[in-house]
Design a binder for these strands. Sequence first.
DNA 1: GGCTATGACGATTACGGAAC
DNA 2: GTTCCGTAATCGTCATAGCC
Length: 404
Amino acid sequence: MSQSSGSRASGKAVLKPKKPYLDFPLTPHACGKWAKKIRGKLHYFGQWARRLEGVLVPIAGEDGWKPALEEYKKVADDLHAGRTPRGEADKDKLTVADLCNAFLTAKKRKMDAGELTSMMWYDYKFATDFLVKQFGAKRLVDDLAAEDFGALRAAMAKKWGPVRLANCITRVRSVFKFGFENGHMERPVRFGSEFDKPSASTLRRHKAKQPAKMLEPAEIHTLLDGASEQMRAVILVGINCGFGNHDCAELSHSNQNLDTGVIDFPRPKTGIARRCPLWPETVAAIRAAVAVRPKAEKPRDVGRVFLSSTGTMLVTRTAAGHTVDLLGAPFTALLKAKGLHRKGVGFYTLRHVFETIAGEAKDQVAVDHIMGHTDPSIAGQYRERISDDRLRAVTDHVRAWLFA
DNA sequence: GGCTATGACGATTACGGAAC
DNA sequence: GTTCCGTAATCGTCATAGCC
């Protein structure tokens, strides 16, 4: 390394080394070390000279700057971010990557045991990936402070809406809760007051801004007129019983009695019992759809009321946990074909329509029972049954609205 | 062209417990 | 006794791409 710039030590001029290349980050300091000022503080990295008998003597060799550069690179990220660099004593401490890996491994075990869906695992993976990206894989969990979580929330809020933000905050909190409860961390992490979920009022305002999920009678009749036998049947089941996509896909012959006109079918999502009287139009449509129903591809689907054209379940999940919806997609296609497609309107809208119109019958308990919603009130815990008359009054009200 | 699969995102629901 | 909140989990929609 050539030496040109001068320095004075112990009264004698010493030639400081030149930077080995143009944007070399360190500069030779008069104390004999390479140095860099970061966030207002001077940090030292390796020697460019040794002091012999009070005089600085440059270290021989062209590559003397390399160890100093290596030393700087190891701690640069931490120093520039205002953190204390991780030393030898910290090498066994828990990092963000360690915690995320332990969390995902535990969740994978639950997934393998069938206690967690693969889609849910994918969501956890997404959240942990975001954590690692924001904090850095090697960041010590002990080093995380409230301001880090405040910055994390700000990054999330910049990208996503309040619903997704709330979901992701919940998942991030779950990761650290898992860490503490399972002994990976000595103390719970301080999230700070900024790392909170959007308030209920924020979520309500967000929802209010969304387009109404509603179809009017004329629109529903337009859809029914252009629908296949099966599509006509599922539309009527959707509006008659407030069934969603998954409900229709899961419906079996054993759940319905077309002679008495009643469906008895616990919600697949929650297992909560529900019962719904059928309209004559719905019964006729189901009979017509069943008459042309394709043969089931798998024995387990033989009892299903509705199947895809190839004989598979209408709503299934792939190995990766993604939903394949052969009911919602054709319904949306029908909406588009009839010029009725708009943001937020899909097959599930029929469930919204049922809830909205049925509520006007002024018997919310009966509506909730047909919808399969639990009644969390004390009255709900004591109520053992609900009469078919009340249920029929509700469905008749919706029928009168649709066929008026 | 219709069906199927995938990935990303948004929204909903249940439930227990704390706060009112 | 009711309401609200935090936590945990599931369901639905949409755009896009590949396949038959």
